[in-house]
């Protein structure tokens, strides 16, 4: 077994663990971490494929290395977006869960929290005011 095959197997295992975690974990932060594990596995696998397909004298196939770089940037940006959304969710509902029950306890503070985040939006529970030209935007 050469090193490329070894890396490939490790990558596959990482991807499997990540996918499993993504499905079974309830906490969103753990889901995000699992996604990163899944991504790391895929990138490692891509590295192994790049090594095996490399022409003589090259350490790896540059096309796949380009793919991996793009993938890493995307995964980084996606993680930032997901964590930002999670923080906002925590501020709005006081919970970091995706279950509908997490919203029940938060409805009273919902309007206040949001108003503090953006004073320009109408309160979500308020009936649409005829004078507000943007009232369609909140539904």
């Amino acid at each position: 077994m050469n090193s490329a095959t070894w890396y490939g197997l490790v990558g596959a295992a990482l991807a499997g663990i990540g996918l499993y975690g993504l499905i079974v974990q309830h906490h969103v932060l753990r889901k995000i971490l699992s996604f990163n594990l899944l991504g790391a596995g895929v990138f490692l696998l891509a590295g192994a494929v790049a090594r095996r397909g490399a022409a003589a004298g090259l350490p790896g196939d540059p096309v796949l290395q380009g793919l991996v770089i793009t993938g890493i940037i995307v995964a980084f940006a996606a993680t930032v977006l997901a964590v930002t959304l999670l923080l906002r969710l925590g501020q709005a509902t006081g919970s970091a869960s995706l279950s509908p029950r997490a919203l029940d306890g938060a409805t009273s503070s919902d309007g206040e929290t949001k108003t503090s985040l953006d004073a320009n939006e109408a309160s979500p529970r308020a009936p649409p005011a005829a004078t507000d030209p943007r009232d369609g935007a909140t539904h």
Binding site: A92, T93, P100, L117, D118, A137
Partner: peptide, 12 residues
């Protein structure tokens, strides 16, 4: 876009 808890959940 409206920043309500339920839509943040849906987005996530």
């Amino acid at each position: 876009l409206d920043g309500r808890g339920e839509t943040l959940q849906a987005a996530l």
